[in-house]
Amino acid sequence: MYVALSLAISPCPNDTFVFHALVHGLVPGAPPVDVTYADVDITNTAAEKGEYDLVKVSYAALPWLLDKYELLPCGGALGRGCGPLVVTREGNSNVKTVAIPGERTTAYLLFRQWAEGRSFETEVVPFHEIMPGVAAGQFDAGLVIHEARFTYQRHGLTALQDLGEWWEAETGLPIPLGAILARRGVVDPAAAAEWIRASVRHAWDNPEASRDYVLSHAQEMERDVVDQHIALYVNEYTADLGDDGHAAVKALLRAQAH
């Protein structure tokens, strides 16, 4: 019997929307949850140390984590038309320095594949600092994820490349972004998957129930941006990866191995 499970997710609307019911004790039979909110570069590192029972990480980090964790087939972020963007200031085509959200993120793996043969200096920067840093001229370009798809123009930035479009053209598969892992020997993965699926169903059936919770963690996002974010990243693959989802994960891991 579980006393309480430690859970680490991002404060982004897709995660808080999906996990609202589980975090707030609204999933019958699920244990209490102690939740931590952190950027994915932090959760990737924490998972390598085995710090959480359930944790959201980048799919690209899986090779370093599967000795301690098992991949769950639900709760993550995977889809089409939702990939990372390489953004620059208007008119800047001379890119030498790039701000990235983490070296073991899916975004950076895709960037390396797309940029093969070209030379860039990269710097890991907290996600929320990337666009302001590019706009201020600290970096020539930035690798952005999540709601930045809807807001980068407000910073006077332009999209140099949509890496999701590039990936889909190359593979024909959806893009695997964030995965949910369960710690081996601590969490029953089948039970955890059922709790998370129940939380997803509750979110879809009661979209207003999580509204205040989602907005409170949404880092100054307007309601319409939050809604677009959830609509894009919480989809059929959130409930179950399915054949396409599993194929996409395998393709990404093959790319990681090269």
Rank of each mutant, 00 (worst) to 15 (best):
V200W: 07
E168A: 06
D15I: 02
A77D: 10
R183D: 13
H217N: 08
I100W: 04
I130E: 03
Y59C: 13
S119E: 11
L85I: 15
G102A: 15
R80E: 07
A99G: 10
R149L: 09
E165N: 08
E116Y: 00
A239W: 07
T45M: 11
I175F: 03
G133E: 13
W195S: 08
V226I: 10
K56R: 09
V95C: 04
L232A: 15
G137R: 11
E220H: 07
G29P: 02
D53S: 02
F19S: 00
E129V: 08
T158W: 04
A8D: 05
G178Y: 04
G133M: 11
L252S: 10
T238R: 00
D243I: 14
E123A: 10
R183H: 10
R118P: 06
A190S: 08
T122Y: 00
A192L: 12
E147S: 08
A38G: 14
V57A: 07
A47L: 11
D244F: 14
P32W: 05
K49D: 10
V23P: 05
G172Y: 00
A77L: 09
H20K: 02
V98T: 03
L252N: 05
L85Q: 02
V33I: 13
T171N: 04
D67H: 06
A8P: 03
T16W: 03
P126Q: 14
G245C: 14
A198I: 02
G245M: 08
V234R: 00
I180N: 04
W167R: 01
H20C: 02
G81S: 09
N206T: 07
D188C: 05
I230F: 06
P207Y: 02
A190P: 06
N235K: 05
A169K: 11
R80C: 10
A182Y: 03
R112H: 08
L66V: 15
T43A: 13
H20S: 05
R118S: 07
H155Y: 06
D53A: 01
M221C: 05
L85T: 05
